[in-house]
Amino acid sequence: MVIQINKLTKKYGDLTAVDNLDLHIQKKEVFALLGPNGAGKTTTIRMLTMLTIPTGGKALINAQDVTSNKVKKEIGVVPQHMNLDLELTAWENLELHGRLHRMPRDKLKARINELLTFVEINSRAFELVSNFSGGMKRRLMIARALMHYPSILFLDEPTTGLDPQTRRKIWDLIRRLNATGLTVLLTTHYIEEAQILCHRVGIMDKGRLIALGTPQELMKKVGEVVVEFFGGTGTSYKFFASRQQALEYVSHFRGDFLIREVSLEDVFVEITGRKVGD
C-alpha cells in the first residue's frame, strides 16, 4: 500500500473538516475523492502533503509518516488554486522547483525540456506565466509537480474551470503518467472524470467517506442515465441503466425534459437522500 490513512481528522474550531477518514490506496492506482464543495477533499490532500497538520489520526506514505521530511521527495502536488509564480517564466517555475529539490544542473535542464514537451508548452517556455491561459497554467502545474520524479501525484480538482477540450488533455496526461507507474490521488466533483480516469472512487460528504468502490459499482447504485423533467411540483428525476431505456421512457413525453448522464449529484442524492448543499 502506498497511502495508508487511519482515522485522519482535522478540526477547525467547532467544524470537523475531515472526520475519522480511513482509506488505503494501492500502488499504481488512480483514485478519486469525489464530493461537493466543503466535503473535506482539499483538507485531506493538504494533510497528506504536509500543508496542514492533522488534529488526529495518522497517514503514512510509503510506510513513512507524512510529517516526516522524507515523504516530500516521494510526492508531487498540484493544488486546487493556481499557485504558479507569475513573475517567472514557465522554464523558471520548473527550474525553481528543481533547485528546491536540489536536482543536479545537467539533469535539471533535461528534465525541464522533457516535461515542457510532455505538457506541450515548450514553444512558450520563456514566456512569463502571467500570459498563460488557464489550461496552460494547469498543465504547467502538473509539469512542476513531476519535476523531481515523485512516485505519487496529488491533483486537487485538476480540471475544474477548464473547457471540455482542455479537460480531455489533462485526462490524457494523467492516463499516460499512470501508465508509467505513477500512483495518482485526485479530487473532483465530476463523476464522469472519476469514471473515465479512476480505478476506485471514494465519495466524501461533510468530512466523511460515505461510499467507496469502483466507478461501475457506484454508478450501478443509481443507474447510468437520468431523465430530468419539469412538472408542476418542480424538477423530478428518473434513473435508467441505459440511454435506450431513457429514450423509451420519454417517447410519450410532451413537456420539457432533459436526458443526461448520471452525475455525482445524482449518486449523492441517492446515497444521502438529500441534495448537495442541503
Partner: peptide, 13 residues
C-alpha cells in the same frame, strides 16, 4: 494571495 509560499512548504527546504 498568490499562495506561491506553498511551493516552498512542500519542498524539502
Amino acid at each position: 494571495y498568490n499562495k506561491t509560499l506553498e511551493e516552498y512548504l512542500i519542498a524539502p527546504v
